[in-house]
Nucleic acid binder design. Structure first.
Lengths: 205, 205
DNA sequence: TCTGAATTTGACCATACGGTCAGGAAGTGC
DNA sequence: GCACTTCCTGACCGTATGGTCAAATTCAGA
């Protein structure tokens, strides 16, 4: 029987569950759900396959756990956008935070991209219940800023999309970016300056 | 023995190879390379599994064929950027063509995204030999336009990245976009107007 | 140190997968 | 109609995969 949810996890449980999830993040983000195997996760984590299944109810359970963890922190940058701040500053800060996430958590970005790319079969409800409300809230906020003349008039929804697309591109398409930017060490730094210019010009009233 | 490359393909061969590739595009773009199975391609195409292996040398052969076909047409919009045209017009037209590709060939876009996401294991050389030269050529062209004062000064490489990211986003993250834009039928039309504004403001000197 | 619970493992299972093969069905040219 | 090639299929194979289980090992508290 897998450790029930009632009792608090021992130190061993914490350590091994973390190991498994870390290895699984590597494997799932690199091969997609179906392409990932428990044996790979086993090898990468250093735990035997049956032992992994002692800590998780199965492959799907591991994947779902990862996606839940991800959703919990992935939207933080958007959540932090402050209605009382300066609109342009807030949005540019959001772009910056989002790009920083690409740098710090590329595997998480790719895990998410894989799931969406395949039609979000294991995440559809989460998107609707977790992401949609926040998205609606923030697009409404941006619209209010625009109506008040504090931002240039653009469709807030497409604005958010373009921020996500441009920032996540550096993590998700890393293999391509790397080939095309051979020799340039400071890719993300250049991206930061570029995106700042871009969104500043777009949004300045 | 699979049909050799020496003889011209019969009508049956043309039809069945096309069927297989079309089905395979569905399956590969939706599940990634490892996640796709010959049985799925078999069912989707209406051809038996051994028959599929009569036309192709194996799963890998089908995938490679798709990627080659893709590369041949995928870069056309970029290739068409005319050095003698008006810089701003050329770039905005490129954005428009790229977005149109997302609308017309979403499966191809996702096939490509899947491959890059997983580190381009079967496409790395292609990127270097096919994409890199074109990328270098066009970024150099844009830089010349900038040096001549005909475009606002931005990093041409990040400019291209941002065009790819924003346009392909609507195909690759379709599942997410659909959830967040419930009710809006004309998503791509709105995107077209938004991106036009965005890049116009960015690039106008 | 002893004891019961938590942790770990080797051996095993059913299924699914990519691929093969011998032979049958269907075209094609004469 | 006949012969020859092309096209197609059912049955099969070796391997990989997700998962199970009984038994062994380790751990934590008294």
């Amino acid at each position: 029987m897998a450790p029930g949810p009632a009792k608090k996890p021992s130190r061993i449980q914490q350590r091994n569950r973390r190991r498994i999830l870390d290895a699984a993040l590597d494997v799932f983000s690199g091969h997609g759900y179906r392409g990932a195997t428990l044996d790979q996760i086993s090898e990468e984590s250093g735990l035997s396959k049956p032992n992994i299944l002692y800590y998780f109810d199965g492959k799907k359970d591991i994947h779902v756990t990862l996606l839940n963890q991800l959703m919990a922190t992935w939207l933080d940058p958007l959540r932090e956008m402050n209605p009382d701040g300066d609109p342009l500053d807030e949005l540019l800060a959001y772009v910056h935070r989002k790009l920083e996430m690409s740098r710090a958590y590329p595997r998480e970005s790719r895990l998410f991209a894989n799931e969406i790319l395949q039609g979000a079969p294991r995440m559809g409800p989460h998107l609707l219940s977790g992401l949609k409300p926040l998205f609606d809230e923030k697009t409404a906020l941006i619209q209010r800023w625009i109506d008040a003349g504090r931002l240039a008039p653009v469709d807030p929804r497409h604005l958010i999309f373009s921020i996500w697309a441009t920032t996540q591109h550096y993590a998700d398409f890393d293999a391509q970016v790397r080939v095309l930017m051979t020799g340039d060490k400071a890719i993300l730094q250049g991206a930061d300056a570029y995106l700042d210019t871009m969104f500043r010009k777009l949004l300045t009233p």
